[in-house]
Amino acid sequence: MEFNEIRTATIPVQLEDGSIVRIEVSKTGREDIALDPKPFKQVTDALEGIVNAIAVPIGKVNPRKATVKFGMEIAIESGQLTAVLVKGTSKANLEITLEWGS
């Protein structure tokens, strides 16, 4: 698999139900990427961990409403898919809004 100038490639990824989707990934190291489908479970496990790490402390402060916005890039590292928090339109990786009151 050959990467373009911005170091991304489109690769096949297998979902847990067996479906194959193609996603664009960033290359973080110096390795070739095989064309065999990569399991997406590592990415969904990372997403679940991130959401739980944010939800637990938000639940402790018990806001009326909570909004969390973040970007996640999918990268290839050592031949495996990796989830990476990325910058969105602001300078922070996470944007969290909490509201209390009526």
Rank of each mutant, 00 (worst) to 15 (best):
L98V: 08
L85F: 06
L98M: 04
A66C: 12
P63G: 07
K65R: 14
K65I: 08
A75L: 08
M72R: 05
V61C: 09
I96G: 05
T82G: 07
M72Y: 01
E77W: 09
V68R: 03
T97A: 15
E73M: 09
V84I: 05
Q80T: 12
F70Q: 07
N62T: 13
A75T: 04
G79T: 01
R64C: 12
K65C: 10
V61R: 10
S78H: 10
A83V: 02
E77Q: 12
V68T: 07
K87Y: 02
E77K: 10
M72E: 01
K87V: 02
A66D: 13
S78F: 06
L94P: 03
K69N: 10
G71P: 02
K65H: 12
I76Y: 00
T82W: 09
T82E: 07
L98Q: 03
V84H: 02
K69W: 09
T67A: 14
E73H: 09
A75C: 09
G88L: 07
L94T: 04
V86S: 06
L81V: 01
T67P: 07
I76E: 00
K69Y: 12
A83Y: 06
V61A: 07
N62A: 14
T67F: 11
R64G: 14
I96W: 07
V61T: 10
T97N: 15
P63V: 07
I96N: 08
K87M: 03
K65A: 11
A83L: 02
M72S: 02
T82K: 08
V61I: 11
K69I: 13
K91C: 14
T97S: 15
L98K: 07
M72H: 02
V86Y: 00
S78Y: 04
V61W: 08
S78P: 12
